[in-house]
Design a protein around this nucleic acid. Structure first.
Length: 302
DNA sequence: AACTCGGGGGG
DNA sequence: CCCCCAGAGTT
């Protein structure tokens, strides 16, 4: 048996173990019950940098409120933003709304199945485009997110991470074209249930073929706990904190005086000068999340 | 390549 | 208190 054959055999074992694991133990997630590409689109945007458990209730509420692309496309941004509260990264909601408008106007209300066309939509990057093409349409595009990256890096290279180029080649080599729709979701379940940031190897389907597992036993220190830690800024009082507050305040009213928004936003935060908050409001206006009538000095969500 | 964008739950 | 989490867009 040549080394190449050996390697191929190794990959086959890995693949079949992961797919078998998926058929038995896969998580029952709401967006996996649907084949509707719009549902997949909504779930994937919500899942950008946001945990599954927090997305589930928002996802179901969102689709009950905006059941189709057309409903979302003709909705008011304010209603979209209100449905988005609690998910964070509000501009994702804005971009999803713009996505729906483009899909309704230029794609006949059908979410594209082509990766390039998907990539061209606002808020859809490489990962999300591949995820939609693959999960909704069964097209053979590896959707490489942090989970897939971590599992493949560990199993194939015995490291927590490898360079993007190396990983891309490895992902393509391992990718089973016949199981395109399931493969990456299977890897995500392996990541969520076993190959977590801090690994739980017991019961992992990749255990036998994993180059990382042997290293896990000797526990890693896991904490430099060093003196020179850069020390992160507090969340309260940060730009993110105030942006979130501004959006939350505005989502509850039709429109309001700019001055009142500023005072309500900094309420209870004496450190925040009005000028700083005003500049955050202007950032939000530039991004398209809110509108300002300078003459009448009023602000609102479109 | 480095930053910014929310918010919550867990170690 | 720090870290992580189905990333994308801008500079």
């Amino acid at each position: 048996m040549t080394p190449l054959d050996e390697q191929d055999e190794h990959v086959r074992l890995f693949r079949s173990a992961v797919l078998r694991f998926y058929s038995r133990h896969r998580r029952d997630l709401p967006w996996r019950r649907s084949q509707d590409a719009y549902h997949i689109l909504v779930s994937e945007v919500m899942l950008q940098q946001t945990q599954v458990n927090r997305v589930i209730p928002k996802y179901e509420r969102f689709l009950a409120r905006f059941p189709t692309v057309h409903v979302l496309a003709s909705a008011r941004l304010r209603d979209v933003v209100r449905a988005w509260i609690g998910l964070g990264y509000n501009s994702r909601g804005l971009r999803l709304w713009r996505c729906a408008k483009i899909i309704a106007q230029r794609h006949g209300g059908v979410v594209p199945d082509d990766v390039e066309q998907l990539r061209a939509l606002p808020g859809i990057g490489t990962y999300t485009a591949c995820a939609i093409a693959s999960f909704a349409y069964g097209k053979p595009h590896p959707a490489i997110d942090t989970n897939v990256r971590r599992v493949l890096s560990r199993v194939l290279f015995g490291r927590d991470s490898v360079s993007a180029a190396v990983l891309r080649r490895a992902a393509a080599r391992v990718f089973p074209a016949r199981a395109a729709r399931r493969w990456c979701q299977a890897l995500m379940d392996v990541a969520a249930l076993h190959c977590r940031s801090s690994p739980r190897c017991e019961g992992c389907p990749a255990l036998m073929t994993c180059r990382f597992a042997p290293k896990v036993a000797r526990a890693l220190p896991r904490r430099p706990s060093g003196s020179a830690a850069p020390r992160k800024a507090a969340f309260a009082g940060s730009p993110r904190f105030f942006r979130g507050r501004i959006i939350r305040i505005l989502s509850g009213v039709g429109s309001m005086p700019v001055a009142r928004l500023l005072s309500e936003a900094k309420d209870g935060s004496p450190k925040a000068e009005g000028a700083r908050i005003a500049s955050l409001v202007d950032d939000l206006r530039r991004e398209g999340l809110l509108r300002i009538d300078r003459r009448r000095r009023r602000v609102w969500l479109p």
